[in-house]
C-alpha cells in the first residue's frame, strides 16, 4: 500500500482538527453572552488559529506540488476518481474563501489580525464599503460548505474502509 507522505498526513489531520474546531468555535462564540469570560478571548483565538490554518494551507499546497499524492487505487471507477478529485478541489477553493473573507472581516477598519500575541498580520487592502458585512456572509456560507463537504468526504472514506474494504482511508492514517 502506498501511503500519503508523513507530512501530507500530518497536515491533513492537523487541518481537519483545526477547521472543525474553528467552525465550532465560530458558531459558539457568536452566541456568547457579553458577560461570558470567553466573549473577548474567543474571537482572538478564532483569528489566531485561523491564521495558523492559513499557513498550514499554504504549506500543504506547496508540499502537494512538490510531492504529488499517491495514484488513486487501481480498482476505483473513473467517476469515483473524478468525484474525489472534484471534492478535493472544492475544499481548496472553499477554504481559500473562508480564509480571505475571515481576514477581510478582521481588517475591515484597518485593524491588524492578532496571532497569539506573537505577531500581527497587518491589513493589506484599503477597506471597501460594507466590507465586514459582505465578508461576513461569505465567511459563514463558505465555512458551512466546508463542513458539509467534510461530512461527505468522511462518509466516502468510511464507505471505502467498511464496505469496499480497500486502503483509501488507511493511506491517510
Amino acid at each position: 500500500m502506498q501511503k500519503y507522505t508523513r507530512t501530507a498526513r500530518s497536515l491533513h489531520w492537523l487541518m481537519a482538527a483545526g477547521i472543525i474546531g474553528l467552525f465550532a468555535l465560530g458558531v459558539w462564540m457568536r452566541e456568547l453572552d457579553y458577560y461570558s469570560p470567553y466573549y473577548e478571548p474567543a474571537p482572538y483565538w478564532h483569528k489566531s488559529i485561523g491564521i495558523v490554518m492559513v499557513l498550514l494551507f499554504a504549506l500543504r499546497i506547496v508540499w502537494r506540488y512538490l510531492n504529488p499524492p499517491p495514484a488513486p487505487l487501481a480498482h476505483h471507477q473513473a467517476w469515483e476518481k473524478k468525484l474525489a478529485h472534484a471534492m478535493h478541489l472544492f475544499f481548496y477553493v472553499a477554504l481559500a474563501l473562508v480564509f480571505i473573507s475571515g481576514y477581510l472581516i478582521a481588517t475591515a477598519d484597518n485593524r491588524p489580525v492578532p496571532v497569539f500575541g506573537l505577531l500581527e498580520l497587518p491589513p493589506l487592502f484599503t477597506p471597501f464599503d460594507g466590507q465586514e458585512d459582505i465578508a461576513g456572509e461569505v465567511h459563514e456560507y463558505a465555512a458551512w460548505s466546508v463542513i458539509v463537504a467534510a461530512l461527505l468526504h468522511a462518509a466516502g472514506a468510511i464507505k471505502h474502509h467498511v464496505i469496499d474494504k480497500d486502503s483509501t482511508l488507511r493511506r491517510m492514517l
Partner: peptide, 11 residues
C-alpha cells in the same frame, strides 16, 4: 461606533 466588528454586531 468606529469599530467595524462592533458595528456589524449592532446591525
Amino acid at each position: 461606533t468606529n469599530h467595524a466588528e462592533r458595528n456589524k454586531h449592532l446591525r
